[in-house]
């Protein structure tokens, strides 16, 4: 009996490993954020459009928010920008931007040309805030809960598909639970 049981168990384990490993939606370079479920990092940055003012966590305290890390040198950011403007027009959740390691004039120009989906963008010139948020490649998008925790982190360009799949259920759960 045990002669057959051991190979079967090994086979079952290998099938599990392969199913997980060969999942076409698995991104090998994606790292889970250590902030998931934990309070989002604090930040305070000068606003991109108005350097005299700052944008910080306090701006979205008590409400759901999306924090999007972007830059003009980032191809994926250009790719997702259309969806972000659509999302902003739906008025579901405010989108805050962190303009990461960019040139201010180019970033401002980008918002004029492609539209500005952000309530406000902070200007992270030297990447300090990016490091605090564990950013390693733009675009990255965080979903922040009403009590300031990171609910989800999306790597790479955001699309309607990943929004509906990953963000929408979390938002529904969050608004349902706290109403």
């Amino acid at each position: 009996m045990i002669r057959f049981a051991i190979p079967l168990v090994v086979l079952a384990l290998m099938i599990l490993v392969f199913i997980k490993g060969l999942d076409p939606e698995r991104d090998l370079n994606a790292l889970p954020s250590p902030f998931l479920g934990k309070p989002a990092p604090q930040f305070e940055l000068p606003k991109l459009k108005n350097p005299d003012e700052t944008v910080s966590n306090e701006h979205y305290e008590g409400e759901l928010a999306v924090v999007n890390v972007w830059a003009t040198w980032c191809v994926g950011c250009r790719q997702e920008h259309g969806f972000l403007t659509e999302l902003a027009a739906e008025n579901l959740v405010p989108i805050y931007g962190i303009n990461w390691r960019d040139r201010r004039d180019e970033a401002l120009n980008w918002l004029v040309q492609l539209g500005d989906p952000y309530v406000a963008s902070g200007y992270d010139e030297d990447g300090r805030v990016g490091i605090d948020w564990g950013v390693y490649g733009a675009p990255e998008t965080f979903l922040i809960s009403k009590d300031g925790r990171v609910l989800h982190k999306h790597l790479g360009p955001l699309s309607r598909y990943s929004w509906e799949k990953d963000f929408a259920p979390l938002i529904a759960a969050e608004t349902g639970a706290t109403q």
Partner: peptide, 21 residues
């Protein structure tokens, strides 16, 4: 993290530069 098989000593990616700083 940007160039996952290099240490930040070997990498000239700006993320590595930021991390070194």
């Amino acid at each position: 993290l940007k160039c996952q098989n290099q240490t930040i000593k070997d990498s000239s990616a700006f993320l590595a530069d930021d991390l070194r700083r």
